[in-house]
């Protein structure tokens, strides 16, 4: 396999991990975030500092990156998840930018806006694919567990869910914290893949992209998110030669999807349900 293909597969795995995290929060718990790139940044920086400064092994460092993102998400989530709809989206946007600005200005630890160089290239193909597969299995187990169903109940009718005795506030916080873990791990892997990170890589544009991928794939469909990640990552790669038009096409695609098929590629169904219907029709 050539280095280029390998790189694309690694990138796909990283994007898919972050996408799964955001999909859990937005698609399953119905919380719309515009600041998830910040959790990727937290994961990336934690792992980079632990491996470079404290020469820790990359595996615990990646997990630590995810955990730091989780802790920060918990402290952000407890007060802000009381907010609904656009208010939470704007709060998350503001918090995401604030985290990025802190990373940019905290020179002594993060080396500021110029970025953090010299990270060990620990994200090899097996590492990325392995992390992706483990997190994928965990995610599908989660969304089919009673917690996953509770998330969906909160999304579909917040009030009805709380009347049924679900602690809706805790469920939303759980979804946020888990999604932050996924994004933190994705960020940590990204740092190991590029061996260089910079606060500006995790700006609002990146957050928008994370959410856009989830919406593109279909809210409430984990396999849709994976499909969306595949399509968007490959299209982004295909358009690299005409990078000038890349963002324009990306923006236009977002609008066109919302106009033509706002429920995304798969809607809120999982991929196997399509095959099942297909088979039934056959017999």
């Amino acid at each position: 396999m050539s280095g280029y293909t390998e790189g694309i597969i690694i990138l796909l795995c990283i994007n898919a991990i972050a996408g799964m995290g955001v999909s859990l929060l937005t698609g399953f718990a119905g919380v719309f975030s515009l600041g998830h790139a910040a959790y990727m940044a937290l994961g990336a920086y934690t792992t980079a500092i632990l491996t470079v400064q404290y020469s820790m092994h990359w595996l615990p460092a990646i997990v630590a990156g995810g955990i730091v993102a989780m802790i920060v998400a918990y402290f952000i989530g407890v007060p802000t998840l009381r907010l609904m709809g656009d208010y939470f989206a704007i709060a998350s946007l503001g918090l995401g930018e604030a985290i990025r600005l802190i990373l940019e200005n905290w020179q002594s630890v993060t080396r500021g806006a110029r970025g953090y160089p010299g990270i060990d290239p620990y994200t090899t193909l097996p590492v990325a694919v392995g992390a992706f597969l483990i997190l994928l299995i965990l995610m599908f187990n989660f969304i089919n567990s009673r917690y996953g169903r509770a998330c969906k109940a909160c999304r579909d009718d917040y009030i009805a869910a709380s009347l049924l005795g679900f602690n809706t506030a805790n469920i939303r916080i759980l979804a946020l914290v888990l999604s932050a873990f996924y994004c933190g791990v994705a960020g940590a892997l990204l740092g190991g893949f590029l061996s260089f990170i910079q606060p500006v890589m995790f700006d609002m544009m990146k957050s928008t992209e994370l959410t856009a991928v989830v919406v593109f794939g279909g809210l409430g469909s984990m396999s849709g998110t994976l499909l969306g990640t595949l399509v968007i990552t490959l299209v982004t790669e295909l358009f690299r030669p005409i990078s000038q038009y890349r963002m324009l096409i990306y923006g236009a695609v977002l609008v066109i999807i919302m106009v033509i098929r706002p429920e995304g590629i798969l809607g809120n169904r999982e991929l196997p349900s399509f095959f099942r219907r297909f088979l039934r029709r056959d017999s």
Binding site: F32, D86, T208, V215, L248, Y250, L254, V255, M258, V259
Partner: peptide
């Protein structure tokens, strides 16, 4: 309104 929000993000990029 979520769909409008995302369409508006798309328009801003465009």
């Amino acid at each position: 309104t979520l769909y409008l929000l995302i369409a508006s993000m798309g328009m801003s990029i465009v």
